[in-house]
């Protein structure tokens, strides 16, 4: 399974998101520290889930970071997060 698919599966299972978009941005970082041939090092995540209601920004990031701890400790070098609760205006 690709790292991207692993991220999608874990986030779906943990947060039952209304919407989820995981974008591999590794190609934007070619030549930069952390980039590896084959990509799958830099990801951007847009996720809307009721699980984030009433949670602070830091709490939301911590929830996602904990869910993806294995990926972050492994091949994933950068993870940009855009977590929202349903109905929130995207920032």
């Amino acid at each position: 399974m690709s790292t991207k698919d692993a991220i999608i599966n874990k986030l779906r299972e943990a947060f039952l998101p209304e919407s989820l978009d995981v974008i591999d941005e590794s190609h934007l970082h070619e030549g930069h520290a952390g980039h590896r041939p084959g990509g799958e090092t830099h990801f951007r995540v847009y996720i809307v889930s009721p699980a984030f209601e009433g949670k602070s920004r830091i709490e939301r990031h911590r929830m996602i970071n904990a869910t993806l701890a294995a990926e972050l400790a492994g091949s994933v070098h950068a993870l940009a997060l855009h977590p929202h609760a349903p109905g929130e205006k995207p920032r």
Partner: peptide
């Protein structure tokens, strides 16, 4: 306070 995403937001 946070990392890059949080600081920017």
């Amino acid at each position: 306070v946070g990392g890059c995403d949080i600081i920017r937001e």
